[in-house]
């Protein structure tokens, strides 16, 4: 790839903590290489700010490989930025050109309060999993792994749903701040496997109840979530979830 340098203007959301009022601040960065990742560009800005005696921008990140789900930036009106099926840590600067202005905000949702600048609190997702996103099996001696063959298509579909990284981009993209795509990914992952079968009904019921309790909005099928999901979790999972929920409601046994 041809490599080039660029100067950019960044408008970044600054907020000292969850109680403080936030505002946008504008920064200039120079000589950014097209080979840098987006977060490396922020690193450059932060180093510059520290040297000049300012408080650097706080943001979440860890693996920088698109898998831990920690990074979360709302860039020019889109969670994780312009690339399809991507996390912001995997966004590279060749997506931009000299002179561009980039607006960066945190995820915005009542259930995800801002901790500082671009960092938000996503512990609501953990609590949704606690409500039922598991198979109740203790460590011990389950049956041999090959004792239960699983149709490859089902296994593949379960894997595709299980690929969710819990980043919350779906919530950030949704005008209702619904967490349905996230919840449906987990419900689908486990509903598609025989191991998940015994708790199918209670799982979906309890997870949905917890989701409502956390203050996520309802789903109106706009598809904004699917469009930004870095792991290409499909809306069809939401359809499966609705179905599971309906069946559970009709026949709930506990």
């Amino acid at each position: 790839m041809e490599h080039y340098l660029m100067n950019l203007t960044l408008k970044v959301w600054r907020q000292a903590n969850s109680n403080a009022k936030g505002k946008f601040e504008t920064f200039k960065v120079k000589d950014i290489s097209s080979e840098m990742s987006f977060l490396e560009m922020i690193d450059v800005l932060n180093e510059q700010m520290i040297r000049e005696g300012h408080d650097p921008i706080a943001f979440d990140h860890d693996c920088r490989e698109g898998i831990c789900g920690m990074c979360s930036m709302y860039i020019d009106g889109r969670p994780h930025g312009p690339w399809h099926a991507n996390t912001v840590c995997q966004l590279h600067m060749r997506a931009y050109k000299d002179g561009d202005t980039i607006v960066i905000e945190p995820w915005r949702a009542n259930a995800f309060p801002v901790i500082k600048d671009l960092m938000v609190d996503r512990s609501a997702f953990d609590r949704i999993i606690q409500a039922g996103g598991y198979v109740s099996v203790n460590t011990g001696s389950p049956v041999d792994a090959n004792a239960t063959p699983i149709q490859k298509d089902n296994a593949d579909a379960a894997f595709a749903a299980a690929a969710c990284i819990g980043c919350g981009a779906c919530v950030a993209a949704c005008k209702n701040s619904s967490a349905m795509l996230f919840v449906s990914a987990k419900v689908s992952h486990l509903a598609l496997l025989p191991q998940g079968n015994p708790e199918r009904k209670s799982r979906v019921t309890n997870m949905i109840a917890q989701m409502d309790k956390e203050g996520f909005g309802s789903c109106t099928n706009t598809g904004a979530c699917e469009a930004v999901c870095p792991k290409e979790i499909k809306m069809s999972n939401i359809a499966r979830l609705n179905n599971e929920y309906l069946v559970a409601g009709l026949t709930i046994d506990k």
Binding site: G140, P142, P149, I150, K152, F159
Partner: peptide
């Protein structure tokens, strides 16, 4: 034992067409 445990938890390992791991 690890593989048995993980499969019981619902870890979706790759499978063959016959349904085995």
């Amino acid at each position: 034992n690890i593989i048995d445990q993980c499969v019981a938890q619902g870890v979706p390992f790759a499978r063959e067409y016959g349904g085995l791991l």
